[in-house]
Write a protein that binds this DNA or RNA. Sequence first.
DNA 1: GGTTGAATTACACAGTCGTATAACAAGATT
DNA 2: AATCTTGTTATACGACTGTGTAATTCAACC
Lengths: 214, 214
Amino acid sequence: MADRRPYRRESEERRREDLIAAALDLVAEGGIPAATVRAIADRAGVTPGLIRHYFTSKEDLTRVAYHRLMEQMIIDSAAVLQGGPDDAMARLANFVVASVSGPVADPVAVGLWAAFVHDVRRDTAMRDIHTANYLAFRNMLQALIAALPRSVSDAKLRSDAIACNGVIDGLWLEGSILPEAFALGEIPAIALTSVGAILNVDLVAAYQPDRTLP
Amino acid sequence: MADRRPYRRESEERRREDLIAAALDLVAEGGIPAATVRAIADRAGVTPGLIRHYFTSKEDLTRVAYHRLMEQMIIDSAAVLQGGPDDAMARLANFVVASVSGPVADPVAVGLWAAFVHDVRRDTAMRDIHTANYLAFRNMLQALIAALPRSVSDAKLRSDAIACNGVIDGLWLEGSILPEAFALGEIPAIALTSVGAILNVDLVAAYQPDRTLP
DNA sequence: GGTTGAATTACACAGTCGTATAACAAGATT
DNA sequence: AATCTTGTTATACGACTGTGTAATTCAACC
């Protein structure tokens, strides 16, 4: 008889985390079709059966993985705000640049995000996850816009946030899918200019790159 | 013996067209995984083997289908320009609105588009198709911007086109994925305002909805 | 109106899919 | 050190995947 594969018992959290990471890895590399239970288990260093021990179904794992992905993207965008300048204009400018630069703007991240779009439209639970995270991002942006030294109505503030979010998303998308179609730094520069034009402020001048990094 | 399924011989063009349409249909409904050779054949009213008679592989069919999809989206956007007003501002305004409204901005179309993003990143042939169509759209937009009564440098023209394309793409995306998150007509209005702000022209005033329709 | 060529169907094949269930073994408890 | 719990592996199952090949039948041609 062939001997059984040796194994270590791990905490539930650790195992779930590993499986989620493996699933996202595979989706990024080969799209949804590549994330099979066997491939995921293999990547996570376990056997396929274990997935059903931590997730009620593959669909369940998919939802959790998507949630994790969205969560991480927001965290990455927000990270630039911590320890940055106090000036409202500078904060917005830094946020805009961060949202269309790495690690947020990354071919892998976009591929990952796109892979789930269909499920978002089809599955209610997935759509709820998407809506919550989309609004979280937009509200973060809206708060930064509201802090600017200008006075506008609430309705205008909402429109501005949607518009700026649109530019950012669009540039994020194009810059990530076709990075070779743009010069280095071109997308962030355009993002600053156009968001500034929409809000009628000079964001280019306000931009203060992080000087604590080399 | 069970009798053989009766069939009609069709032109090559017709059969290829039917198979492409069936494939896109299925991807729209159930994502890439749903577009199996059997499902496609069934939807097109033929047997699976026929697919391999018209396409060298399933991958081949996928590429052709993606090409067709992109082609159609550009045609839909450009359609608004024909028979429209002569005024450059009005033409641009109409184009912008059309690009973020139906049938271009449609949940199904976005799901379809997103389903192919991963392949675009991975497959050279797919990326070529994407690049060509992305640039075709952007150049169309750039030509409309260039016709405006204002004088800017070529570099600025390029930046403006990328920025406007970004807003349009971003709003197209958000409005299509989460249509219920926006009021009726909100996205087109925001698109006109923000593209106008970027180009420093009043597009809202210039917008002339098609009066030949009810 | 047979004959012929090609469009179409039918079938087979080896893999892979997600899932269900039973056997095992690692580590805590006693 | 013996026992118990349960995390983990192993294996089986039916359905489905893309593809290759042979058999058929339509429609055009002479």
